[in-house]
Design a protein around this nucleic acid. Structure first.
Lengths: 236, 236
DNA sequence: TTGATAAATTATACCGGTACAATTATAATA
DNA sequence: TATTATAATTGTACCGGTATAATTTATCAA
């Protein structure tokens, strides 16, 4: 673990333990420097990390402040670490319907940047939140990268397995959000009616080196789904 | 304009002019350093900015690569610079239905963190994309911050006015995305039917100092709306 | 050809400095 | 009191350096 990451975690803990609220001020840079006995640039990196994550915001000439949205129950569209991380506070369960090796759909092979006849792991599952159907999820994993999967792994956090089991590093994600109307089959899965709002998100997950390894289509139960998005305004 | 911002723009230009595609490699750090005659840390900041913006990704030990999603026609949920910036390539027009000073709804005053009897500018408008209804937008601007608005300003980019006219700096935004079903009135505005999917986004826009100045509710025509979200995976 | 090993390449981590700019607090002035 | 000028506070920009770790390329052995 890198210094600036550890310090970021420490600062998060500090915010938690002191129950700091939105707008509350953190100790000044120099205090943090001496406190953690590192150079200014390291503290700065830690704060940049926390800013990216949306935990703090910095105001030049003024200080470092806590940023935190108040509303609960929202799924963050920005973290790409999978459900386990996103919704720790909720009771999320899932039911794996299918898991096999197959050749991908044209759409999947295109998004994974592999040959149409290459092997992929296909996983279809339903997720529940507090007993209600949250979403139906279809995932295609590039088998050349994710060489092995089974039900146990898929039941736990696939992303943890990818990192720790396979030693790979998850990088950026491109997501595409669409709205449509449910057809009969989809409505049936979600316990809704045909013609009800259909919210689905396509996600292309990449390793840190830019290789896509997972293409997923997630259809949400619109009644259970509220999303939260943070943005930080860059001006170029 | 700061050095690292200028260089970021130059690098973007370079990508554009050389028509670099996703995965193409940029010159190595040292080359960029000497090219722009700045120190390593400045180049690094430029690249960080471009990475935030989703233009490039960096791979330690390998290089700096172009990141660009291929699909077109998506509204980015991450930039908080308003529509004018997001959809430059499309023909966006808008029709202002209401513009007045009033006291905010309870919801708006809460989200703007002002007294219930404080003054706000209320703006209601419909936006069109290539002649079709894109969305209906209701905005509440804290009049203590946005002291003056008129139809001309609102017709142009409000965000440009806030920056250039008022000399304020736009910082972060919290957005909340919901799905529901349209009621009669909403359906009428959008040219859809009652019960059709309703996609609406609440946005709370802040200045760089953390003050909220704009609370907006945007109801989209689901047929015209596809959203794009980039995320960069931080691991804390 | 394959596979392991070593070397070269390359970006990142971290340091500690100076100068600067935005904000806020203080003091002076009307 | 209200306004304006001044000073103190505080984070950011930028420099240039050393050390390190990830990746790729080259080399060598089987």
């Amino acid at each position: 673990m890198l210094k600036y990451q550890e310090i970021a975690i420490e600062i998060e803990k500090y915010i938690e333990e002191n129950a700091l609220q939105q707008g509350d001020k953190l100790p000044v840079l120099e205090t943090l420097m001496t406190q953690f006995a590192v150079s200014k640039s390291t503290i700065t990196k830690s704060l940049d990390l926390l800013e990216k994550k949306g935990m703090v915001f910095q105001v030049r000439g003024s200080g470092i402040f806590v940023r935190r949205h108040k509303r609960k129950g929202y799924i963050s569209l920005l973290s790409n670490q999978g459900f386990k991380k996103d919704l720790e506070d909720y009771h999320i369960t899932s039911n794996i319907i299918e898991l096999d090796v197959r050749t991908p759909t044209e759409e999947a092979s295109h998004n994974l940047n592999i040959e149409p006849n290459a092997d992929v792991y296909y996983v279809k599952r339903i997720r529940y939140i507090n007993g209600q159907t949250l979403c139906v999820e279809e995932s295609y994993y590039n088998k050349a990268i994710i060489s092995y999967l089974n039900k146990e792994i898929v039941s736990e956090s696939i992303f943890d397995y990818i990192r720790e089991g396979l030693g790979l590093k998850v990088g950026f994600t491109d997501s595409y959000l669409h709205i449509d109307k449910l057809n009969d089959e989809e409505a049936n899965y979600l316990g809704l009616n045909k013609g009800d709002p259909k919210l689905y998100v396509e996600g292309i997950f990449h390793l840190t080196n830019g290789q896509p390894f997972d293409f997923s289509k997630v259809t949400y139960n619109y009644q259970q789904s509220q999303f939260f998005i943070q943005s930080n305004g860059y001006l170029l």
